[in-house]
């Protein structure tokens, strides 16, 4: 059978979501942000809620997310997306609201907004892309930069004594009563993507059922920041980030997983 016979429209089983625009992604080749952007839109499209969803894009590599995500979106000042989203969800309780933030945005400048939106149990979804570095500004140390990990502002590797240890913000907020579900994922293999997709769908389901705050952390490579090829970076992520930031469910239906 010729390839041309196979690639007929009726045989298509996978393609880019129609909820993503045609704008080429600004993310570096092989970056997890691209996969995350697409996956979230695939879920929103499949759930048929794109007309009732409002996204909040932060400052960081994903600041241009609204050029790629074909839904209503507003751009928040650095670290403030949870506050911006809080007001949207409070004034439009029937809408699906999500923030999409990096580690610097959510766990450094926006720590207070993150903790208090979670503590209030706002009925929304927070997507937290953790690549252990500030990507957009060229690879500086972030709150989740690992011990010994080099960056442009920890050129000799992160030293706990002077720079503190990597912040487990997700485990931190998981303890807040208002937080309904928390899980950590990665997107470098098809198995991980499929698992993450289930969690993303569940998160928006939680919103529909008004269960409170759903928090999804997605570990990602940062090829330009880590100065590695995408596949090497993904391997590095598995060997180094997974032990410190273990994948899986952290809180399910309001109960911490022991």
């Amino acid at each position: 059978m010729e390839v041309l016979d196979i690639i007929k429209p009726e045989n298509q089983v996978f393609c880019k979501s129609q909820l993503m625009t045609d704008t080429p992604l600004s993310y570096c080749p092989g970056c997890g942000h691209g996969t995350a952007n697409n996956l979230i839109m695939e879920v929103i499209d499949e759930m048929g809620i794109s007309e009732d969803t409002i996204g909040v894009a932060p400052v960081g590599c994903s600041v241009l997310a609204y050029d790629f995500m074909n839904i209503d979106m507003t751009q928040a000042a650095h670290g403030r997306a949870p506050a911006v989203a809080t007001a949207i969800v409070r004034t439009w309780p029937e809408k699906y609201v999500f923030t999409y933030q990096g580690d610097g945005d959510l766990a450094a400048i926006g720590t207070a907004e993150t903790i208090h939106a979670c503590n209030r149990g706002e009925n929304m979804v927070i997507f937290f892309i953790n690549n252990g570095i500030y990507g957009m500004t060229g690879g500086q140390m972030a709150p989740t930069t690992l011990e010994g990990m080099k960056s442009s502002t920890s050129p000799y590797g992160r030293e706990i004594a002077t720079m503190g240890s990597p912040l487990k913000i997700t485990e931190l907020i998981a303890n807040l009563p208002g937080v309904y579900s928390v899980s950590r994922h990665a997107l470098h293999t098809h198995k991980h993507v499929r698992k993450a997709k289930i969690a993303i769908r569940q998160a928006f389901e939680n919103t529909r059922l008004k269960k409170g705050l759903s928090f999804i952390e997605i570990l990602s490579n940062c090829n330009s920041g880590w100065k590695m090829t995408p596949n090497d970076a993904n391997e590095w992520m598995v060997e180094n980030m997974f032990p410190y930031f273990p994948l899986g469910d952290i809180k399910v239906e309001g109960k911490l997983k022991v």
Binding site: I6, I7, K8, N11, Q12, V13, F14, C15, K16, S17, M20, P24, L25, Y27, P29, G30, C31, G32, H33, G34, T35, N38
Partner: peptide, 8 residues
């Protein structure tokens, strides 16, 4: 990441 691949 860029959804450059359609599968049949």
């Amino acid at each position: 990441p860029d959804r450059a691949i359609a599968v049949y």
